[in-house]
């Protein structure tokens, strides 16, 4: 089947089998390997991307279901030159070790911060229950998200003051 998906702002059309999962479409058809696969039961969250602005597990969406929609992956949320505040937060607070869960963790946390600019530790932990990390014990991930939240609030306050 032909499917067109806009990924990180660019439309891509590919001929795929209906069974192609969105994560395989991203990794294998588009070569965007920042999105990872860590399980086969839709639990670990390593494959989290944004689909039309909402965080989803790309291992549990068919590529054909994403037809006509917009996908943002870890490669599209920030760049090395201009990191997303969450990317900075994870770096500053040592919120990653092996890095495998990190893209999904960041994409999931990004959605939290859109709804809640100042989440408590409890809120962050509950929100990230669908993103497994085996390295950090989650301790520094909580701080990483709070670091990003503070930076984003500051940026917003700065923008408000400019207006």
């Amino acid at each position: 089947m032909n499917v067109t998906v806009t990924v990180n702002g660019k439309a891509h059309t590919r001929d795929v089998e209906p069974r192609t999962l969105l994560v395989h479409f991203l990794r294998e058809d588009l070569g965007l390997t920042g999105t990872h696969v860590g399980c086969d039961t839709s639990q670990c969250g390593a494959c989290t991307v944004h689909l039309n602005g909402e965080a989803v597990k790309s291992c549990t969406v068919l590529a054909v279901q994403a037809g006509g929609m917009e996908v943002t992956t870890i490669e599209g949320i920030g760049t090395a030159a201009e990191l997303h505040p969450l990317q900075t937060g994870f770096w500053e607070k040592h919120g990653l070790q092996c890095g495998f869960c990190t893209p999904g963790m960041i994409m999931s946390a990004a959605e939290l911060l859109r709804h809640d600019p100042d989440p408590s530790e409890e809120t962050i932990r509950h929100h990230l229950e669908g993103n497994y990390c085996r390295c950090t014990g989650y301790h520094n991930i909580v701080f990483a998200v709070q670091h990003a939240a503070a930076a984003m609030r500051e940026r917003q306050a700065g923008q408000a003051a400019d207006d």
Binding site: S42, L51, E54, A55, K57, E111, H127, G130, N131
Partner: peptide, 9 residues
């Protein structure tokens, strides 16, 4: 139910 990503779909 599930987690935030599951709840979005």
């Amino acid at each position: 139910v599930g987690d935030p990503m599951v709840r979005n779909r």
